[in-house]
Simulated scan of single mutants.
Amino acid sequence: MTDLKYDVAGIGNALVDVIADADDKFLTANGIEKGSMTLIDDKRADELYGRMGQAVEMSGGSCANTIAGLASLGGKGAFFGKVKRDQLGDVFMHDIAALGVDFPARPASAGAPTGRCLILVTPDAQRSMNTFLGAAQKLGPDDIDEATIRAAAITYMEGYLWDQPDAKEAFLKAAKIAHDAGRLVSLTLSDSFCVDRYRDEFRRLAKDEVDLLFANEAEILSLYQTDVFDEALQKVRADCKFAALTRSEAGAVIVADGEVHVVDADKVAKVVDTTGAGDLFAAGFLYGLTRGKDPVTCGRLGALAAAEVISHYGPRPQVSLAKLAKEKGLA
């Protein structure tokens, strides 16, 4: 379509990630469920931050990571998220602008500070996330710019938004605008514990509202309340025109118009930190889709992006994904 300005418009929690090493003993001592995302208040955030070891701080947030990956591949993105005009908020806005991503939502001048996610990475590379949403939870329908959504080929949203009523309304407003404009709507389920909280609503969304669903194996099993992946696969195949299901080292399974495609994971010399793996898989997949690539190539782009991000600390690429894609003949 000639009036497209963006490949993807993302909507999600604007957060700054604080990442530190930890062992299982630390998780147990601090009541942290391994591999989960837990919402915490400002007091708990301050306490946990004080107990963490040496940390790396960088802009993050699931959907924002995806848009960052899209930009690294050469795509054009916009991102809707809420920060406060404070030190961390300024860092977030600087980082996303430096990527060439448009950030239409205005920062808050008062209220809760910019949100942060405290991420503990254990030696097995699993990440346990403790999220203080702060200003991010103030994202609402008024922050959604209709012109931006209409100008994006795909509107992509994170399931974490369902935890906040105003953000949920922003999600639904954007989806309607996108569909009315003949665009695609995509959703990532975000976290199996998030699915547990909103299973019925997510199943309705997957069946009736979403054109492309992203989920990892734990999330899709939770969505359909089964322990058998093939059972979940058949159910999502019936519900969704398009679904991309990631399975860690087992690769990914892509459902496209009833057909099922298996994509191998890219090899990684050493898995350092799985933070952002699903986010970057989505980035590669969405980039491929907006370039008219077939489902398998989209999945290979996703696998390439995910492999890069799990080879180092942090949820965003450290090298040009566009260059990597070109080297592999995927550009």
Rank of each mutant, 00 (worst) to 15 (best):
K267R: 15
R247W: 04
L184K: 13
L205F: 13
D227L: 10
A252E: 08
G278K: 10
D196A: 14
A283P: 11
D230I: 10
T226A: 04
R203W: 03
Y224Q: 07
T274R: 15
L212W: 09
T188A: 04
E201R: 15
D191V: 10
S192Q: 05
E231T: 09
E201A: 14
L233Y: 02
C240E: 06
V255K: 05
R197H: 10
D211M: 06
E259P: 01
G251T: 09
D200A: 14
F193I: 11
C194V: 15
E249G: 03
R237G: 02
V185K: 00
A181S: 09
S222N: 11
G258K: 02
R183H: 07
D200R: 12
E219M: 08
Q234W: 05
A282D: 10
A256S: 15
D273N: 15
A269W: 00
F242H: 04
R197W: 07
D211N: 10
Q225L: 12
A218W: 11
L280P: 04
A252H: 10
E201I: 12
A269P: 00
A181C: 07
S192K: 08
G182I: 15
D208H: 12
F281Y: 15
F242P: 00
V262K: 05
R291D: 00
E249Y: 04
Y287R: 07
D239W: 01
V262L: 03
V263T: 11
R203H: 06
V268L: 12
A215H: 07
L189S: 07
R291S: 06
D266T: 07
D208N: 14
A282M: 07
A238H: 05
Y198P: 03
C240H: 06
T290I: 05
K241Q: 06
R199V: 13
Y198A: 08
A215L: 09
F242K: 02
D279E: 08
A250G: 01
C240R: 04
A282S: 13
L187H: 09
A283F: 09
A283D: 11
G258M: 06
D200C: 04
V271P: 02
A181K: 05
I254M: 07
E209V: 14
L286Y: 06
F229K: 01
L205A: 15
E209Q: 14
L184P: 00
A256C: 13
A218N: 13
H261A: 03
D257Y: 02
V185I: 10
E209P: 08
V228H: 11
D279P: 07
A232I: 02
A218I: 04
D257P: 03
T246F: 02
T226C: 04
A218H: 14
L245R: 00
D191Y: 10
E219R: 11
V236F: 00
D200F: 07
I220S: 08
R204N: 09
D200M: 08
E259T: 13
D257C: 01
D264F: 02
V253C: 01
A206V: 14
F229W: 00
A256T: 13
